[in-house]
Write a protein that binds this DNA or RNA. Structure first.
Lengths: 238, 238
DNA sequence: TTCACCTTTAAGGGAGTCGTGAAAGGTGGT
DNA sequence: ACCACCTTTCACGACTCCCTTAAAGGTGAA
């Protein structure tokens, strides 16, 4: 009987290969962006990540041979996509563990605006992540799968009504209805697009959170502290 | 605004640290065993993995400084444990992705006895993994958390009855009632102990699977192929 | 105390990885 | 045809990681 540590075990070798690909800041962040926000061109990714094109290109070549991303050449652009939608679950499991670990370990405590802040006109931070998580959990939105930056509506829109959002009044003509937006601090997608704005407006109108002039920070009101945990089960305030 | 690739981002740094610790066969398998089957002594682990003690010790030292395992010295033994139960979800997410990836990629097809075989007196392979997965999903068993090798019963025993197991007749005096047993091929725990035997006996009695002399292989009968997918939603036959 | 055992640490060499810089295909527009 | 641009590859130096070997703490039993 072979031992447990055997490079010929297919599943073990596959997991090791996967973790080695994920164990680099550039590759990991590239995959997080592709998985959450959909396809990107090489230069789009390089600009977003803030790294040089050759540096990213080397990493993308690795990811391509590892089978984690696919590339499609159109003209002089190379469009990269995650090869499998299932990668999102791995990435969120890693981010979730890391986040819980940071809260426990005496490392760095979460920054103040970690709780909630605005990202353009929608909510980011733990609040924004909890919004998307709850809507997906409740079946109101389909989870991001890396095929597209826009999120599709799910079968059960009840969760929107509970958040105070009337879907019929959301104007989706001038911008996408719902987009996944990778949260910079949590490394997990939050809700953007017209729906993201509508949800934040509803939370502000019900005085659950409050915005402040000149800053992107959002503070949770006492009313919000009482109601948000039941409204957004994923929004736990440790 | 800092770029996305920034080693000062706490969550990014934490994920990278985690993936680097997981990106080694010895460390990964050690964590899988500790997470699924509970605490182990260093030599227990070294024997199970088939590696030398110093080799494992160096890796455990890394895992300790990374905060992934804890050690408790009792006498001349060092008992290692996973530091956080949440690690199991990361490990199963990785194994799940790797398994699905192997099925798609033209790598190696799953070995025949990958479907189902016996591990001592209980079922292993995809069948055994699906049994534990379904029982945990249904609330009949609590998921393994690395604190102990034995599994605790959950609140809803209905799933046992559906599998044809009468809990009152399971003899848990001579051995542990339920244990998590890391599946060698799938790298995910399956159900062992007296309950594992009882479930396999029930499946055999109902002629859903069939055992064969002289081999550990289990074959799914036509009746099993019809009923098992509804009985065990996780047991998909690709 | 002495011995056997378990555990941990450390040094050294070999292998692998990463970033930079330069340069080479290709494509579309002028 | 020429140029600007996007993409990809490659080589080199610096760095990290990993296994082996050896040896050093500590503990419990005789």
């Amino acid at each position: 009987m072979r031992g447990w540590v055997d490079a010929d075990e297919p599943v073990l070798a596959s997991v090791i290969s996967l973790t080695r690909e994920l164990a680099d800041p550039v590759r990991l962040t590239a995959l997080q962006l592709l998985s959450a926000e959909g396809p990107h061109t090489l230069t789009q990714l390089a600009d977003a990540l803030g790294v040089s094109a050759p540096r990213l290109g080397n990493h993308l070549a690795r990811l391509r041979t590892a089978g984690l991303v696919t590339v499609e050449h159109t003209g002089r652009h190379a469009v990269y996509r995650v090869a499998s939608p299932g990668l999102g679950e791995v990435l969120s499991a890693l981010a979730h563990y890391a986040h819980a670990d940071l809260a426990v370990r005496p490392g760095r405590p979460s920054t103040p605006d970690d709780v909630a802040h605005t990202c353009y006109d929608h909510a980011a931070g733990r609040l924004g992540v909890a919004v998307l998580g709850t809507l997906v959990e409740r079946g109101a939105l389909r989870p991001p799968d890396g095929r597209d930056g826009s999120l599709a509506l799910g079968g059960d829109p009840a969760a929107f009504a509970e958040l105070g959002v009337d879907l019929t009044t959301v104007d989706a003509r001038r911008r996408k209805l719902a987009t996944a937006c990778l949260d910079r601090t949590h490394r997990v997608p939050h809700l953007g697009g017209a729906l993201g704005k509508a949800v934040l407006d509803a939370l502000l109108a019900r005085d659950l959170v409050r915005a402040h002039e000149g800053t992107r920070e959002l503070t949770v009101t006492p009313k919000g502290a009482a109601e948000l945990p039941t409204l957004l089960p994923a929004f736990t305030t440790p």
